[in-house]
Nucleic acid binder design. Structure first.
Length: 391
DNA sequence: AATGAGTCCAACCGCCGCAGG
DNA sequence: GCCTGCGGCGGTTGGACTCAT
């Protein structure tokens, strides 16, 4: 038995708002302020659901909202944040003054997602399709049915987003990302939860993400071992899958398909080595793989280089001339596909946050602030990498 | 000019977490 | 501890609009 509807649906107006209704909301808010939205329709003389009133205010009428189109800077930030924290539109919107979660969500769904597809990047995983194919090629022990799956994958890469969903890619990538996302999207209960306030929660998300990368890396290291068939490839479903190419993921797959015991799912106790999160670009020839080790999320090709980051740090001199080699990553936000931002790396310099352009971010930004607070406890360091050419 | 396809975005929906009784 | 109401969230829908034929 679900919750009853918040209002009498048969007795409320729906659909687009008129200027007159907007005026009533504005008048009400200017007089009483926001809050207690359920009483707003009555007090404001509207035949609308209170929830609908709140939505109209927050998404359209609020005076601080921007109504112009997204700037390239905003666009880049959305992509970076989506890569770091997924489809948490309200969090992403909070980093974009004057934008609502609905704005960001619509912009992503209508523009950015398509743009990434056109660039050959899976918007779900933010990986190049070629890399996803490689990843799947590296997963041994899959049943023969996966052969058709690979074919569908390839077909999906050349088709439109909507079509790819029907042919299986979305299910596949979302499945693979389930493995990655699950630990990073939830607060980590590790006995230190007392110190995890709302403010630094997101920092732990990012930590979790890094840990997830590590776990996935470890999970894929067992490719020479026997692989337990994940639930979604179980033979029990083969009869239905034979008539349809779409893979139905009805339940979350086990996070570790290896027969070996899964590693403990705790984040590494700081300080830990960033080398743990270095990945090899398996799509490259073996002789280049060692040279092209890269941190997950950084472009494996192009001119992005930690040397350049180091230069940026030296240029920034944010702490009055002292260059600090403590360099903490604000999520793996770099996006190589955008050449103009693929030149630097987001992080902190001398305790101050910098964005991907190397510019200082406001310390008033709670999102960044939360990460910085966590950083101060973590003492993450980058010394081994900074001095070396990135590739 | 008519029409069908594609795009955009405001609005809706259902679920969830939290606070207060 | 349970129930209820509220606000917030992400996913989805539907209609207005634009563009191509």
């Amino acid at each position: 038995m679900g919750r009853p509807p918040c209002c009498d649906k048969s007795n409320v107006k729906r659909g687009l708002w008129t200027a007159e209704e907007d005026a009533k909301i504005l008048a009400y808010v200017s007089m009483y302020g926001t809050g207690n939205w359920t009483s707003v329709p009555k007090k404001a003389g509207l035949k609308r659901c209170g929830k609908s009133c709140r939505l109209r205010w927050t998404n359209y009428l609020r005076p601080d909202l921007k109504h112009d189109s997204f700037t390239p800077q905003e666009e880049k930030l959305i992509v970076k944040l989506h890569k770091a924290i997924g489809s948490r539109w309200s969090l992403i919107a909070a980093q974009l003054p004057g934008r609502t979660d609905n704005d960001v969500k619509n912009f992503w769904n209508t523009k950015l997602r398509k743009k990434l597809y056109d660039m050959g990047i899976d918007p779900m995983t933010h990986k190049p399709f070629s890399e996803i194919l490689t990843d799947y090629g590296n997963i041994g022990g899959l049943p023969k049915a996966v052969g058709s799956l690979n074919r569908d994958l390839r077909n999906a890469f050349t088709s439109k987003p909507e079509a790819s969903s029907a042919s299986g890619i979305s299910n596949i990538t979302s499945h693979s990302m389930e493995v990655i996302r699950t630990p990073m999207m939830e607060p980590i209960e590790d006995g230190r939860s007392d110190s995890i306030s709302n403010n630094n929660y997101y920092s732990w998300d990012l930590l979790g993400q890094l840990q997830a990368i590590k776990l996935v890396k470890e999970a894929t290291n067992c490719s020479n071992q026997e692989i337990i068939q994940p639930n979604f490839f179980s033979e029990g479903s083969s009869s239905s899958s034979s008539s349809s190419t779409a893979i139905q993921v009805s339940s979350p797959p086990p996070p570790f398909p290896c027969t070996q015991s899964p590693p403990p799912q705790t984040i590494p106790s700081p300080p830990f080595s960033w080398n743990e999160f270095l990945l090899e670009d398996v799509s490259l020839p073996p002789d280049q793989q060692q040279r092209q080790q890269y941190i997950h999320g950084l472009p494996s090709t192009g001119s992005s280089s930690l040397t350049q980051v180091h230069d940026k740090m030296q240029q920034s001199q944010l702490t009055g001339g002292e260059t600090n080699n403590n360099f903490s990553v604000v999520g793996d936000m770099d996006y190589g596909a955008f050449n103009d931002i693929g030149q630097s790396y987001p992080g902190t310099v001398g305790g101050e946050p910098i964005d991907v352009f190397g510019d200082s971010l406001s310390s008033n930004n709670s999102f960044v602030k939360a990460i910085l607070e966590q950083d101060s406890q973590m003492s993450w360091e980058f010394p081994d990498i900074l001095g070396e050419p990135f590739y």
